[in-house]
Write a protein that binds this DNA or RNA. Structure first.
Lengths: 290, 290
DNA sequence: CTGATTCGATAAGAATTACTGATCGAATGA
DNA sequence: TCATTCGATCAGTAATTCTTATCGAATCAG
């Protein structure tokens, strides 16, 4: 009984969340045999079966489910107590973060830097992705936190506003010198799932502009290169093109839209890992306004 | 952080309760260097000092105190979750029990038998002692539970009634045949700290008997032998002399007193160890009435 | 002031425990 | 039927925890 450690409980919780030993092993940065061994240790200590074979999976028994349910707040409580004792300097582990490309360019560097300074034991695994997929992965516990653009409201998701960035209509210097929208230009944009796309459509309608075409590309960096090469105009986050505007490679060709892109950090509303909660809190304090 | 086990926290709790590493080591059935090592492990993991040298003792720092305070309910909850998961069959550890002699003779055997049957992993360490010393040891966490006679009410102590036993006035067969109290007999009794002594005095007054002398002995078994050898009369718990009454070696020489001896189980009111609480619960369910 | 006692720290070696990597059999699905 | 995916198992190794025996410091009684 005494030989059950906190990571045994954590193991149990992650198996329950992810469904398989393998997934839990991957989540906990270890191997499947290690997970099997931990489960065996708990079952031996308790003298009861926590899992039952069901096809090729293991599923929790009634007692196992009950134990998991009781252990969840206890585990969170232990982690929180230990972490607050050390002022979160002793926090360890890996937190998986997904980010939209714009959010990544706007606020990830500052966030990562702050985490590395204040929580040196925490490893971040960052993956750039699309908002929809991020939300799915978040709900499926494949990732722990997401940085994304535009207000999202989804059941099971909790968000905190980080800040917002202004938008600018840009074209290459050559295109701008040629008068910009006095001629019909190709417009490039992120696909329609992004709020940027909506802003683009709105301001075109506002100014009564009919673009020659509307191309889309799911990568903002590529978009910038297309525009920089004279490929047309685009509405882009101001911080991402600030450098190019200053160097003169790009130029603004319309008044800045009043609508901004709002960034949010998102976690599962059921999240109880104190490290994730702490990162979420810190993300909410970033207040990146650019 | 992940390498902190439950027993690390348990160690912390016992050091806080008992004041020294040595006492905690003894309480946890291990050695003092092991305790030192555990403390060092926690401090290294957290990166903070939990103890400060103070003379030749170690005392908790502010953070240490806070951690202990936060961990206490968590630890209790954890133990309880694991134990209820296994129906208390997985309970392990040592519980220290003190018992008065009469309680030991009356209800300890049944209790020990039940514990050995239902909680095979639990080791009991039983020591017979006097009520006053038992209460002191209980409050000082030297023991976990006490079985004692007579109602006790003490701050910090929680009791549960187990049952009560009747009392009988006995003398040896020879003394009884000689008429019992028609002659002035020596009366033997437990010293005055026991409720038995009070019952003895009351019934003597009730029957208007003046004993030749009142001897005391702090051991009931010895008392019985004294009486059995014709040394006089005594008021004794009925179950402890039942066999001798049936075999005829002793005989009753006065009507049975109406007052009975009430047995109680006692624990600290701050007790949070689920095993001790479970044993206390079971003790309260014994309902030994003899 | 001295000797006895009690506190915790420390080191060496033994014992135990946990992890990894490679395989295995069973169940599932294309 | 073949390819996947699941978890179990095993051997070797790495890491840990424990015990025993000692040490220095603080405390207390005489």
């Amino acid at each position: 009984m005494k030989r059950i450690a906190i990571y045994h409980l954590e193991t149990l919780l992650w198996i329950a969340r992810l469904g398989t030993f393998r997934a839990a092993a991957e989540r906990l940065n270890t191997t499947q045999p290690a997970i099997s061994a931990r489960v065996r240790e708990i079952e031996e200590q308790l003298g009861i079966a926590l899992f039952r074979r069901e096809g090729r999976n293991m599923v929790l028994t009634a007692r196992g489910r009950r134990l998991v349910k009781e252990c969840e707040p206890l585990w969170a409580g232990f982690e929180k107590a230990l972490l607050t004792a050390s002022g979160f300097e002793g926090a360890t582990g890996t937190v998986r973060i997904a980010s939209g490309e714009i959010a990544a360019a706007s606020c990830l560097p500052a966030f990562v830097h702050a985490v590395e300074r204040d929580l040196p034991g925490v490893t971040l695994e960052i993956e750039l992705d699309l908002t929809a997929r991020m939300l799915t992965q978040l709900l499926g516990a494949m990732i722990d936190m997401a940085f994304l653009a535009g207000p999202v409201a989804s059941p099971g998701i909790r968000t905190a506003e980080i800040g917002s960035v202004g938008l600018v209509w840009v074209a290459s210097r050559a295109t701008a010198r040629a008068g910009g929208f006095v001629q019909s230009l190709p417009v490039w944009s992120i696909p329609s799932y992004s709020p940027l796309h909506g802003v683009m459509m709105e301001t075109l309608a506002l100014h009564g502009i009919t673009p020659r075409s509307i191309g889309t590309c799911n990568n903002v960096r590529t978009l910038i290169e297309i525009i920089g090469g004279g490929g047309g105009a685009a509405v882009l986050p101001e911080p991402m093109v600030r450098g190019l505007l200053e160097s003169g490679e790009l130029a603004e060709i319309l008044p800045r839209p009043t609508r901004t892109i709002r960034f949010e950090a998102a976690i599962r509303s059921t999240e109880c890992d104190p490290v994730v909660l702490e990162l979420f809190r810190r993300a909410g304090e970033l207040r990146m306004d650019g």
